[in-house]
């Protein structure tokens, strides 16, 4: 690299040398992003119009996959399950995160310890968490049923009952995610000027009013941002379901990504799976764009 940059001044025209060396800096990262994100996004879209599979030659089949998808009752169930999961996880996570953040934003004894404890589940690997919760929910020797029996309540088949399984997964996800919400809310609370609280207190406002009239409105952009990232993340749930229920019982915990995985690697219907992936991608993209807009507005 014998480039002479000593002559470079803040001038408008950019020399060939400068451009060349900048692209040398960028090249490795760009190649990786191209292979791991850009090309796959385009490939997914193209594949969704074919019947690509390992077993037979590929044909272009137009919108057949999408038509099939909209009439597929299993897919409809998966969409319903995914929405159930997303709504069930997102809102309690945000409420708990906000309450924890407001509580820990004060100088309570053991603040750092509380914060670390609430953040521990976020650090745990998804699989370790799923394995531990599979044990907690275990019907015959699991601690949850043990506690229920001890206080005189009937034990439940948490992951084996179709009407309980999804809610059991939701509780685990809330446990894992509310630390994230807490941290983001804590950052948001730091940005609220103290004068606002002091003025409110001088005017004789009560704690509840201060919370509802100052804290909550001032956090609205943080709340919206958090809502988006939680939706985007919970929409893509896979690992916990793979470990804990495998989509069962009776398909009651089968989500879109889990079905996508099954369709691609279980039945090798890559084209059909790509159509699911495209639907998922477009849905998530909408939420991501909204989220990015909000982030921009917050930075500005």
């Amino acid at each position: 690299m014998a480039l002479q940059n000593s002559t470079s001044r803040p001038i408008k025209t950019v020399s060939f040398h400068q451009t060349w060396s900048a692209y040398a800096f960028l090249a490795p990262a760009l190649v990786i992003l191209f292979l791991s994100l850009l090309l796959p996004a385009v490939a997914t879209l193209l594949m969704s119009f074919t019947d690509v599979s390992f077993l037979k030659p590929t044909n272009f089949i137009g919108f057949d996959n999408y038509i099939k998808l909209f009439n597929d009752t299993r897919f409809q169930q998966a969409v319903g399950n995914t929405i159930h999961y997303t709504v069930g996880v997102t809102f309690p996570t945000m409420v708990l995160g906000l309450l924890a953040a407001v509580a820990l934003n004060q100088n309570v004894p053991g603040r750092i310890a509380f914060r670390t404890i609430f953040y521990l589940p976020v650090l745990t690997s998804l699989i370790a968490a799923a394995v531990v919760w599979a044990y907690v929910y275990e019907p015959y020797a699991g601690p949850l049923n043990g506690v229920l029996t001890r206080v005189g309540l009937p034990p439940q088949p948490w992951l084996q009952n179709p009407s309980l399984a999804m809610n059991s997964l939701i509780i685990m996800a809330i446990w894992r995610d509310f630390g994230t919400a807490m941290i983001i809310y804590l950052a948001g609370l730091q940005d609220i000027p103290n004068d606002l609280y002091e003025a409110a207190r001088l005017d004789g406002a009560k704690g509840k009013d201060i919370f509802l009239r100052i804290t909550v409105p001032m956090l609205s952009s943080v709340t919206f941002y958090l809502l988006i990232i939680l939706i985007v993340q919970t929409f893509q749930v896979f690992g916990a379901i793979y470990v804990m229920t495998q989509g069962g019982p009776l398909g009651s915990t089968e989500t879109v990504v889990y079905q996508m995985y099954q369709t691609a690697f279980g039945y090798t219907e890559f084209g059909y799976s790509a159509a699911m992936s495209t639907i998922l991608f477009l849905t998530i993209l909408v939420f991501s764009i909204i989220g990015t807009r909000i982030m921009r507005r917050k930075d500005a």
Binding site: V14, Q18, A41, T44, V232, A274, I284, L285, T292
Partner: peptide, 28 residues
């Protein structure tokens, strides 16, 4: 660094921030 196409590449990086990795796993 000053180079032509800088804004375009930066916009691309920001755009790719939004691609959900999980839904791309089959083509990858």
């Amino acid at each position: 660094m000053q180079f032509s196409g800088r804004n375009l590449i930066f916009a691309l990086v920001v755009g790719l921030l939004m691609v959900p990795a999980q839904s791309q796993i089959v083509p990858v």
